[in-house]
Design a protein around this nucleic acid. Sequence first.
DNA 1: TCTATTTATGAAGGATCGTTCAGTTTTGGA
DNA 2: TCCAAAACTGAACGATCCTTCATAAATAGA
Lengths: 218, 218
Amino acid sequence: MARLATVALEARKQPRQRRAQATVDAIMEATIQVLLEGGLQRLTTTRVAERAGVSVGTMYQYFPQKQALLFALLRRYMEKTAAAIAASCERSRGATIAVIAETLVGDFLDAKTTDMNVAQALHAVGMELATGNLLDEFGRANQAAIRGLLESAEDAVFDDPGAVAFALRATLSGTARAATRPDAKRYDTRALRHELQIMAAAYLKARARPRDAEAARR
Amino acid sequence: MARLATVALEARKQPRQRRAQATVDAIMEATIQVLLEGGLQRLTTTRVAERAGVSVGTMYQYFPQKQALLFALLRRYMEKTAAAIAASCERSRGATIAVIAETLVGDFLDAKTTDMNVAQALHAVGMELATGNLLDEFGRANQAAIRGLLESAEDAVFDDPGAVAFALRATLSGTARAATRPDAKRYDTRALRHELQIMAAAYLKARARPRDAEAARR
DNA sequence: TCTATTTATGAAGGATCGTTCAGTTTTGGA
DNA sequence: TCCAAAACTGAACGATCCTTCATAAATAGA
């Protein structure tokens, strides 16, 4: 799945005037919409430009090639997600595992349902292209954040916090996929959130040793 | 994400001779390989035909268009997965929730890691195209199977088995994605399996009421 | 107001790719 | 052995699409 030919994915030129920034925003929004309507197949430079209300040439001033559109979208999306996770970890740092589970699951699904458009569009596209090292980079960041959160738990200590964090991440992302599927009813989303919170709490409890047991051993 | 133009996805002609069946098999295998190497971008009719050792014309005798390749691949994959789930449910029907959790998670991840090639290829492609009603169709089947399994549990009864089955499915598919990612170490896969089994067992236990409580109420 | 810089335009080039079909080869059965 | 049906071939066509570039418009600062 590795891209053999190295391609330029970064912006060719930074917008300096306000209208230029508006243009860039419009292009990214248009990319999302075109993607949602017709998937990767219908994502053509002409169509995106038309939808954004600009000419193709304008697009190529800021995005050196078509893939750069997806790359920019993916990066913005992952930055936002990572920020949401980091903020959530901050919020419940040092709390009990019950609170940690509820908070993390809740905040994560909130973030995903807030930009459901982008999530849907990107999920459908798949992660085959334009990913560069984004997946790894943000994956590691999220892993570290959640792991740190687990280690800060007030009432429990984990033998292998890394493995627990990894399993939690896998579960969260999978659920997010299911919840943002185009045909998912709102019922599904709300129910899933509740179920996932219970699942995470039960899992953490099953995986934890109580703190006082550790203290007693000293 | 809906395909507006209806397209023919079924085989145009059924292979009658043995060599024709071999050709079809070779084409499907070639599709997987090309997909793994270069993603959807590199999946061209010429490339697949060349890799399969046949001419493009031959391909078009069995697959009315390019999308039909993906459709066939996806269907075979989902049929196999659904069969594995059904078989697993059969195996642990009427067992305790602990056994049910361990069996279901284990069998599911076994199935996914067995055809890891196809899983990787299809995950990367995304589910945007050629899906028809396959996702819904097999989704419903799997949901029904797991729900039935839960209702058969020896030592517990669930208030909302549908919701529990749904949450389990979301978790399983998400974990499968994480475990079949091209950069996943084997360590990840084995560790994930164990963690997921613990998670599922803990979740079912948290969601269950004991059977004898129900019996006592009568 | 004037001008250098930034931004926007869109027709045209060049390349790739999906699909067809007229013709050839192979197969299975009589 | 012979032939009708099945299977296979691959050059050619038509359509789409990405990308470039010469040119024009808009902007900000002097």
